[in-house]
């Protein structure tokens, strides 16, 4: 009886081990030439807890963030943008952020308001510049351009959601929410 049980265990190990190996390999993040491979659409987290979807667009230099109720006010000589973000779950969160750029072009056309916002993309934790725009006619609220992607990731146009947001900041916030 014991002998048969041992033979059975050995059989399961020998036959099953390749499949365990594949499963383990599949969990590793794919890389190409030292860069992480992302899909053309990814989940991102803005400002620590606003879940959004982002379109990876290497043909655009700048990144965009779709906002609601955008207003710009001046306080103590500095410009601040107040706006709301609507996350995937439908809840909105209000923000008031210092404006980096708000200049008119030489032809008189106004440029979008630019601010810095914390972003979690895969394991990357960044604070890139975003143009605040109306993206209500697009499927993704965020568009990430070359200034975010260059040197960090390559984009696989046949994949989406290759890397879930996994930043230290997020983990800290989630654990503090659970404990409270």
């Amino acid at each position: 009886m014991k002998k048969n049980a041992l033979w059975l265990l050995l059989f399961v190990f020998l036959v099953g081990s390749p499949f365990f190996a594949i499963a383990e390999k599949a969990e590793e993040v794919p890389m190409v030439q030292g860069r992480v491979v992302l899909g053309y659409i990814e989940h991102v987290v803005i400002a620590g807890d606003v879940d959004l979807e982002a379109l990876m667009s290497p043909v655009h230099h700048f990144s965009e963030l779709g906002v609601l109720d955008l207003k710009v006010k001046e306080e103590n000589g500095e410009k601040y943008a107040s706006f709301a973000l609507r996350g995937k779950k439908g809840t909105t969160k209000d923000f008031k952020v210092k404006v980096i750029a708000d200049k008119a072009k030489p032809d008189g056309k106004k440029q979008p308001i630019v601010v810095r916002m914390p972003l979690c993309l895969g394991k990357f934790q960044l604070t890139p510049q975003f143009r605040l725009v109306d993206r209500s006619k697009f499927e993704q609220e965020v568009r990430l351009g070359r200034r975010v992607l260059a040197g960090r990731a390559v984009i696989d146009p046949s994949t989406t959601h290759a890397a879930m947001p996994d930043c230290k900041d997020l983990a800290t916030k989630k654990s503090s929410k659970k404990s409270s």
Binding site: Q33, R35, P58, R146, I155, D156, P157
Partner: peptide, 17 residues
């Protein structure tokens, strides 16, 4: 010219840098 996913998917990855 703009080459979209109807060509790129399954063939290439794009490096912004």
């Amino acid at each position: 010219v703009l080459i979209g996913r109807n060509f790129l998917a399954g063939k290439f990855v794009v490096d912004s840098s």
